[in-house]
């Protein structure tokens, strides 16, 4: 393999990893605050792609307007899923909330099949993102560069929000202890809703860029990225935002390089993430950046 091809794969791996990172952050935030795997996260990501698709293809609005609208709508969707299906179960056993999350994921997916039909749709190509650049002998699509930049900017904003704003402090407090946070005058429900909103909006950014990168969109497209990004979150240490980003990059790069180096393993590409999950759970269950949590009796 020549250096150029290797660089090409690396570029692809980095942009894939950034997409995974964006979606993994949503998982990690929700898990950090509610100790819940939001199974519906992959479906929320899928809906964002459809919102953007309809905004551009059906209503013909300019893409930057559509993207902002789609991100806001997706945030709203995530918050309403939390309001309807998770909030009533706040004091229920964990298994109930998990089943409810699976139910929501299924509901959104099937609703999408009913509303948008199960046939794949072609995500509109936007010239701004599809332009090709040539760096040395490596040809790179503008999108491949835009994705990591967007991810880095959003990450910086998110870290600022969490560390330096009142809402961010509230979020960290709720994640530590719901009861004590309530005693300190924090509106727990509002904070959790906000977490879902932010997580879903990040997933929306990921979804839209996913649509640009892989223009074939269909209602079941959220399942695999959803599962993989959860794995990325576990890999990095669930509950830690920088961990989710690291996990996303390891997963994205690993997948691309695996297929690049071992071409006959292409069929097993989707299994790679799961094997990684099992390995990390066996050897370091708290993940790369995770803290050790001891169980209270």
């Amino acid at each position: 393999m020549s250096l150029d091809i290797l660089l090409q794969h690396l570029a692809n791996g980095i942009s894939q990893g950034s997409l995974y990172a964006l979606i993994a952050i949503g998982y990690t935030m929700v898990y950090g605050i509610l100790r819940l795997i939001n199974f519906a996260h992959g479906e929320i990501f899928m809906m964002a792609t459809y919102f953007a698709f309809f905004g551009i293809a059906t209503f013909g609005m300019p893409w930057y307007v559509v993207f902002i609208l789609a991100i806001l709508l997706t945030g709203l969707l995530g918050m309403s899923a939390e309001r309807v299906a998770y909030r009533p179960l706040r004091d229920a056993p964990k298994i109930s909330i998990l089943i409810s999350a699976i139910g929501v994921s299924y509901l959104i997916q099937n609703l999408a099949i009913v509303l948008f039909s199960g046939r794949p749709k072609a995500f509109p190509q936007i010239e701004f993102f599809t332009r090709m650049f040539t760096v040395g002998n490596v040809r790179i699509q503008a999108l491949t560069i835009v994705i990591p930049i967007v991810t880095a900017v959003l990450l910086a904003v998110l870290i600022y929000l969490i560390n330096h704003t009142k809402n961010g402090i509230a979020m960290r407090a709720v994640a530590k202890d719901h009861e004590t946070a309530k005693l300190m005058g924090i509106d727990v429900n509002k904070t959790i809703a906000l977490t879902f909103g932010i997580g879903s909006m990040l997933a929306a950014v990921g979804g839209i860029m996913w649509g640009l990168k892989f223009p074939n969109i269909l209602p079941t497209m959220g399942i695999m990225p959803g599962l993989k990004c959860f794995i990325a979150a576990v890999l990095g240490g669930i509950g830690s935002i920088s961990g989710a980003v690291i996990g996303g990059f390891i997963l994205g790069l690993g997948e691309i390089l695996l297929v690049a180096f071992f071409q006959n393993l292409t069929g097993y590409r989707d299994a790679f993430a799961f094997v990684l999950l099992i390995l990390i759970l066996l050897f370091k269950p708290t993940g790369i950046m995770g803290e050790k949590i001891s169980e209270k009796v």
Partner: peptide, 17 residues
């Protein structure tokens, strides 16, 4: 097509809540 699964998943959520 697919309405059945929508109703079905709604039922699951209602049962669990």
């Amino acid at each position: 097509t697919g309405m059945r699964m929508v109703v079905y998943s709604l039922l699951l959520i209602i049962v669990i809540i």
